[in-house]
């Protein structure tokens, strides 16, 4: 028997109410993103209009008070820090989830999972503070000055590790038990089961985790601001200080006026563009089935 959905709904007024509530909630969620983008564009427009888009990529430096607005060094800084931390955190996080699911005895697995959850809950400013007083002097002893791209990557890795570890954990938990039993019946060893059966089955969950951690790595501000040194330059080594786009906004917003302020909104717009590109790339790689 098939009932069309509109028939079901028309019979139950509460269902219709729920439908409209859900529609409203969805509309709000969508509208917020659009509003933010519209706001960013509006605030950035004055400087875009009389400075031009090109100068944000061709000016000799970022000195907004003197009229130079080059954002590219910060774009590179953001990208390097993001790529570095994602490259380290992803295998670590996935392997941690595999350990938790298939190797660790339950006595270890449960507290271990709680620990990872705790790691996810620590505020970013705490990581930043720890980085500033422990990590930065440590790196400074090896290769001065200390605040550097490396410090940023390490801090970001620690921060996004729980995201990917927990997402991978949830992904692995969703792998149907039959698959595992089937693999066991075929006599596959544990690692072969994980590699050949579990990973393909949990692919979308793992992929979602990578997208979420990358988003967090791009958006992180406070911790990065405290450990990266914030010098506007394209880094030539891991020990060079960098400034990310997010740190740029946080550092300068408080006293920025006029074009300087509008230029910071352009930073925000560029960040938004990066995130959009990330989502589009993820969609393209997974052929539109990220969450499926």
């Amino acid at each position: 028997m098939t009932l069309s959905s509109s028939n079901t709904l028309s019979r139950w007024p509460t269902d219709r109410l729920l439908l409209w509530l859900l529609r409203g909630a969805a509309a709000i969620a969508g509208a917020i993103v659009l509003l933010i983008v519209a706001f960013l564009v509006m605030e950035a427009l004055p400087v875009l209009r009389h400075v031009g888009v090109a100068r944000f990529f061709t000016d000799p430096s970022w000195h907004p008070a003197e009229g130079f607005y080059n954002l590219t060094p910060m774009l590179w800084g953001t990208l390097f820090a993001m790529v570095g931390s994602v490259l380290i955190a992803t295998p670590l996080g996935i392997l941690s989830a595999v350990f938790c699911h298939y190797y660790a005895p339950p006595v270890v697995a449960r507290p271990y999972r709680r620990l990872i959850e705790l790691l996810a809950g620590i505020p970013s400013v705490v990581y930043g503070f720890w980085g500033l007083v422990v990590l930065v002097p440590l790196i400074g002893a090896i290769h001065p000055p200390g605040p550097s791209l490396l410090a940023g990557i390490v801090i970001l890795t620690i921060m996004i590790l729980p995201t990917i570890a927990l997402m991978a954990d949830a992904g692995l938990a969703n792998v149907p038990q039959q698959y595992l039993r089937g693999a066991a019946a075929l006599g596959l060893p544990r690692w072969a089961t994980i590699r050949g059966v579990v990973f393909p089955a949990a692919k979308s969950g793992l992929f979602t985790g990578v997208i979420l951690e990358t988003g967090r790595a791009i958006g992180e501000t406070m911790a990065i601001l405290m450990v990266c040194g914030n010098v506007v330059q394209t880094p030539h080594s891991l020990f060079d200080p960098i400034r990310t786009l997010t740190a740029n906004i946080a550092l300068e917003m408080a006293y920025a006026v006029g074009d300087h302020r509008a230029a910071l909104f352009v930073s925000g717009l560029v960040l938004m563009g990066m995130i959009a590109a990330l989502v589009a790339a993820a969609d393209w790689i997974s052929h539109g089935r990220i969450y499926g």
Binding site: L132, P147, P241
Partner: peptide, 22 residues
């Protein structure tokens, strides 16, 4: 433009902590 810095900081407290740690 002429200043060659290794660290750029925001507020005063951050400056104090940076120097205290280095």
């Amino acid at each position: 433009v002429d200043v060659k810095a290794q660290v750029v900081i925001g507020d005063n407290e951050q400056g104090v902590k940076t120097v205290a740690g280095n």
